[in-house]
Design a protein around this nucleic acid. Structure first.
Lengths: 210, 210, 210, 210
DNA sequence: GATGAATGAGAGTTCATTCAT
DNA sequence: CATGAATGAACTCTCATTCAT
């Protein structure tokens, strides 16, 4: 048995990291097929081609595995979008890029997004509260969006609206699109992105008379 | 024992209907506290102050209970909003009323909405597919919204946009707001509704130059 | 509620007897279809078109119902065969008639015989022992057969054999035939009876050299 | 967890085979005491001194356990008798050996035979049909007996009778004896076998005048 | 590091029985 | 007399977790 249970950033060997990624990958596959509720460790282990005990060995328990899965998927999403948005110039372009790249990422990673959603909406703490969607937990996620909107208002590019509410609606549009990407096989990300960009362009641009 | 398994509109005694509602109410409470995945029949029965067997007696099984719960909550939502929207005149007013009344209903029924979402996203058929969010299943839900948008475009009140995508974004905004109503105790439905109405008013109205 | 539970020969009203027969008839049907193990009171009540409670009202419990069922079926079998055997003259004819009439009764009452067998082999006392096939319980059943065989030996019609063993083999042949009547739809009672009579005629007749 | 569900001859570790045999042995004991209908997994596990889950771990379910039990008992019966019958020479000796060795085996394995009977008469498929006594399922069991009888008739050792009916009566005699071995503690297999052999010798031998 | 084996709690469901109406 | 409702125990089965090897 490992000498102790690493809770934080304790160093892990390369081989151990590989095992963890392998197990998480198997978990993603299983959840995408049968849903979080039916994704037992037995099923995940069988999918990974290993024995059940290995999972318990590498993770503190099922919950830690799921939490790690969420973090890993979320990080890989950020890695995809951050450079794209950074390359855009000015609030308007940044906003459009933010929306488009998010939808594009969803389109290219439908399964991952579906699994992420499933876990986030189901994984709970011991006291019954949701682990990831707890109050205020969204703040870091929509922070950059709010910043873009505020910058646009300050520079006179955007009109007069509540940037927090606007950011939340945008976020819900993206999350909702994630659901569509899962449920609607012929959902077309490109045209959807075009329409969404146009919509929010109209909603945020400075009015003629203003 | 009930004479047979009533699938459709078989008549049920008043007392039986009362029990069914009581059990559903207990299920709603339990799910709102511990989530769908942890809402066992034992917990629901204890909450209702009855024995486990009673649930099996009045419902064909856990799944039928959950399905009934969804239907009941959904129906009560429709009963709330339909008359409001019907009273509005013209596409623009109808749209604004639709958005506002939805958000208002969510605000007044936060727990119900949260539970409804939880069950809908988790209840599955025997083959593993989601029971309520199956592809195309959304159509009847956004149908009236699309009709309003199309009517507005035909009469020249609304501008040029894809009414289906627009309706979907609106729907996602409402569903997202439902999540906020649950997670953010001080979420203010009134100001949120004002901003959302303004947003979609700008996004749908006929442009000056058009 | 009835003033007391009649255990023995307490008089029952005509209407009560009718109810009891109705319930037993339903039980026979159900057992013949799903077997003793799956014949729940609920199923029997549904088949009889009455409520579950009625059974508990008219019988002391499931076991008493089953015991009554066995007795009723057994009695009706005796009523069928006794006059036939009584009409035969001489041990040889009586034996042949006994065998043939038993097989004929089985043929004409396949379902009843199957159910009788099923219950007898499964109904148990509280201590786990079989209720009907307990040691020595068979004696009254093969008694008349032994008497016929002994009479034949005494009068010199039959040869020298152990009449008890011979009677038991005959009984097992009949019981076995009951099983065949159930399992083999095209089992032909007539030719089977002919062969069985011939077989036991040869086995019991006085040898040439004796 | 076992890698997969072995239906056929997949290799099992020695230790797993031992466990399976241990569980089956416990099941035999329990069934012999309380009958198939009352032989719950909980009781069997307690008798084996293990936890309930172990049974589910080693068997696919209760039904597989019971089916395995039947097969194991049946095979061990065949192993006992086949060499004995093979050693006998000529139809007459083979027939006598068949009858005697069957009764001897029953005598030496009373409990096993009783349990086998109980399970065979109760274990059912999902559709309600009996699993082991399905129509035609008896054919392989009485096949060797029929062959012996036919051979005897062809060589002129046996008289003129229907070999199939004769074989069935013999089989029923043996099965019936199994029941007696269970219910009648002082049932004497030796004298019973002598009488049975004599009986069927008379019934099958070629008549003087033929 | 990894495995197979075992545990024990808890899941949904069925059932015989009881009882107020 | 009969019913529908409720009980509580027992059922099979699944699960996350632990542990000796």
């Amino acid at each position: 048995m490992r000498p102790e249970n690493e809770t934080e950033g304790r160093r892990r060997s390369f081989i151990e990291e590989a095992r963890r990624r392998q197990i998480i990958a198997a978990a993603v596959e299983v959840i995408s097929e049968v849903g979080y509720a039916n994704a037992s460790l037995a099923r995940i282990a069988k999918r990974a081609g290993i024995s059940k005990g290995v999972i318990s060995y590498h993770f503190d328990g099922k919950d830690e595995l799921m939490a790690e899965l969420v973090i890993q998927l979320y990080v890989s999403g950020g890695e995809f979008m951050t450079p794209l948005i950074g390359a855009a110039v000015g609030p308007h372009d940044q906003l459009m890029t933010y929306l488009a790249s998010n939808l594009q990422f969803i389109d290219a990673n439908r399964i991952y997004v579906a699994v992420l959603t499933d876990v986030v909406l189901n994984l709970r703490n011991a006291d019954g509260t949701l682990r990831f969607t707890s109050e205020g937990g969204e703040e870091p996620i929509i922070r950059p969006l709010i910043d873009i909107l505020r910058a646009g208002q300050d520079t006179g590019v955007f009109g007069d609206f509540d940037p927090v509410v606007m950011a939340k609606v945008m976020r819900d549009t993206i999350d909702g699109a994630a659901g569509r990407a899962i449920r609607e096989p012929d959902w077309d990300a490109g045209t959807y992105a075009d329409e969404v960009c146009r919509l929010f362009d109209l909603a945020t641009r400075k009015g003629k008379g203003e």
